[in-house]
Amino acid sequence: MNTTEGRHARHRLDELIHAPVRLSIVATLAQVDEAEFAHVRDTVEISDSVLSKQATQLEAAGYVKIRKGYIGKRPRTWLSLTPTGRTAYTDHLEALRTIAEGR
């Protein structure tokens, strides 16, 4: 058995956030308090269906809050990171930095 198991920073990577599309979504949301669905979709350059699926997975993990409402008569969806999501993202970035810097 390897005595260093669990010490390498890769063990701290969040598998849910690590996927490129979900990482891009979380990174976009980390910059704001809340973002409209269309803004996130356009920023990350994905389709509505891909964003919907990925946001639902992040919501199920408690990382993203999905809020629905209206502007006038037009339905809108807003996304935001939860405190849990912000912490997971920060921890994931720190693990990536540690790996990249060879620490």
Rank of each mutant, 00 (worst) to 15 (best):
T82V: 04
H92S: 06
T82I: 04
G69M: 12
A55Q: 01
R10H: 12
S47F: 00
D91W: 04
A19E: 14
L13C: 11
T56M: 06
I99C: 08
A61I: 13
L93R: 15
A55R: 00
L79F: 01
G69H: 11
L96K: 13
A9F: 12
L96M: 14
L81E: 02
L79I: 00
L58V: 09
G62E: 10
R7I: 11
Q57F: 12
V44I: 07
E36Y: 05
T56L: 13
R10I: 15
I25G: 05
Q31V: 02
D33H: 09
P75D: 06
K65H: 13
E59L: 09
T3P: 08
S49I: 08
V26Y: 01
P20N: 08
K73H: 02
K73C: 00
D91V: 10
A19Q: 09
G6M: 07
G6D: 07
H18V: 04
R10N: 10
A100M: 15
V44L: 06
G69N: 09
R74M: 04
I46K: 00
I46A: 02
E36G: 08
P75F: 05
A19G: 03
E15P: 05
R12Y: 06
A19K: 08
L29A: 01
R76C: 04
T82K: 05
V50N: 04
S49M: 07
T43I: 05
Q57I: 11
W78C: 00
R10S: 13
V44S: 02
I99F: 11
I46S: 01
E15I: 05
G85L: 03
H18N: 15
Y70V: 10
K68I: 09
Y70A: 12
R22V: 00
D91A: 15
V26S: 04
A27K: 10
T90I: 12
E5A: 11
G72Q: 11
R103E: 14
A35V: 12
I17W: 03
T84P: 00
H92Y: 14
T43H: 01
T3F: 13
K53P: 00
A100D: 13
T28H: 06
L29C: 02
P20F: 09
A100Q: 12
A100S: 12
K73P: 00
R97V: 10
P83C: 08
D14G: 01
I17Q: 05
G6I: 08
L16S: 06
E59G: 09
A88H: 03
S80C: 12
T90W: 10
E59F: 08
T98V: 09
V50C: 04
L93S: 05
H92N: 08
H92I: 01
G62P: 11
D48Q: 05
V21T: 13
I46R: 05
Y89K: 10
A61L: 14
I17Y: 03
H18F: 07
R103Y: 14
V64P: 09
R86V: 07
L23I: 02
D42P: 03
R76N: 02
R97I: 08
I66H: 06
H92P: 02
A60H: 11
Q57L: 13
R10E: 07
A88P: 04
A19W: 03
G6A: 07
I66R: 14
L29G: 02
